[in-house]
Design a protein around this nucleic acid. Structure first.
Lengths: 278, 278
DNA sequence: GGATATGGGG
DNA sequence: CCCCATATCC
């Protein structure tokens, strides 16, 4: 089974890229999209359905928006944190459409578009941290019912220095600040005791692990390049799109890779797909 | 010698259409562009120069703008009415960049983007009529020095009913109202006495004549189709782009035709080129 | 730099 | 319907 994650930065603008990519990647069972930037009524479902895919969407006008494109029917589709968390806990964090999840072959696929956070200390930064805190509650609840969980999407966080093209201003940069990294690490540690979190030895015991890192320790692998400053040409990228797997799935993972090709097309998204196989 | 007129509705958006068209129409000596919609500093001259053309521009930000693209060097290039008319007479009518002219092989080519006029009775309508009145003065002065004059461009006026796809609301429609037609007919009658203007018999004596009408009386030939209402597919067009020739040139004219092909391209201009040969 | 929205223009 | 401009977001 293959699951792909791709922030398309507008599904309407990137429609042919997405359908072309599915056709050249027929082994992908589920394509998780972020930043579809379209209300559900205007989502171009037909082009995917004509290729034989099922389409599950959770969108809004202009910003955010997530979708699942699947060869097989998905079950127990959930939109937003509110699907399983209390209204009170969710607060305003479902106003932005960033969470969709569903089940295929006993695996729950959770597709996320984590807030960008703008700049450290900003209101949006605080929103990002609050959002991640709620995500932790969402994961705790999800893991009560599932042992096979694939949490993927645009995390807008690079956990390790080698996931960024440069070391410059790393600590003061959005997507790599210590606080963001700590917060995400804490989120991924769901189910692990504080002591376990500090030990690298028991990675598979509980918590979620980065599928990409099962297969390589190398740096210099990126999934996002800023449109500005010719970043892609100069390979000034970041690895911020991830597949985090529950222990059982992590053990079963056979591959995880980044397909750089779509970033080379005309009018590309600034992100490129990341695929995991298990 | 061939001269083409084409309202490209943004030269930056239509750059490849324009360069492609020149390459498939190598017999065109001068391409007159309207609605270039770009300040001179940002006009994409290089792509034309790399094909061996000379570029003469008179543009502004966002609106209007005219240009001459020529295989040979042009002489006595003039921008705006103010190049030959008094400041007082011109008033504010050079604020919008709509007039460029130059000489090739003893022929003065005058490239115009006549105001659209918005709707009958509007402020813009009055501007259009005032602009045409000034054009008449400009032509009178020009004809004092030239016997070979080719006045071309987007006139935003269809002089005859057969130049429009329908008869509906013609009298109340911008581009076909009686007043606009009278005004343009009066402009074209430069040099003819009031009595001559009423006589069709002496068309070649003085004044300017429609090159396209030298070769056919047929209706249904159009140079512009509104982007809206699938006008092109339904051939709901207007012939509003013209080549008006002084008597000497009119006699020498060997062809005048509309090339509909560019209107069929992806992201086309709403206008298509009109070419005259003499 | 490229996506969105809105508003003016045709 | 498709230009442009401005503004916000990333």
């Amino acid at each position: 089974m293959q699951v792909a994650s791709w922030n398309v930065n507008s599904i309407r603008t990137r429609l042919s890229h997405a359908t072309d990519w599915l056709q050249t990647n027929p082994e992908v069972d589920v394509l998780c999209l972020q930043e579809t930037k379209v209300v559900d009524a205007d989502f171009p479902k037909a082009p995917f359905e004509e290729l034989g895919y099922h389409v599950y969407i959770y969108g809004q006008k202009a910003y955010n928006g997530v979708a699942l494109i699947s060869k097989a029917t998905l079950t127990d589709v959930r939109m937003g944190f509110g699907a399983i968390l209390d209204e009170e806990a969710v607060g305003n964090l479902d106003e932005q459409k960033r969470v969709i999840s569903a089940v295929l072959d006993g695996v729950r696929i959770l597709n996320l578009y984590v807030p960008n956070g703008s700049s450290i200390g900003s209101e949006k930064y605080e929103y990002k941290l609050r959002w991640l805190a709620l995500l932790k509650q969402y994961l705790i609840k999800t893991l009560e019912e599932t042992t096979k969980l694939n949490v993927c999407g645009d995390f807008n966080i690079a956990l390790e220095n080698k996931d960024i093209y440069t070391d410059e201003k790393r600590d003061k940069h959005i997507m790599s600040s210590p606080k963001e990294r700590e917060t995400l690490r804490d989120v991924l540690a769901v189910g692990r005791s504080p002591m376990e979190r500090d030990s690298l030895s028991d990675l598979l015991g509980v918590g979620l692990a980065d599928a990409f890192r099962k297969f390589t320790d190398e740096g210099g692998h990126f999934s996002w390049w800023d449109y500005r400053a010719a970043s892609f040409r100069r390979n000034m990228g970041w690895r911020i799109d991830h597949h985090y797997l529950s222990p059982e799935l992590y053990e079963q993972a056979t591959r995880c890779w980044i397909d750089v090709e779509p970033r080379k097309l005309e009018k590309p998204s600034d992100h490129t797909p990341v695929i995991v196989e298990y």
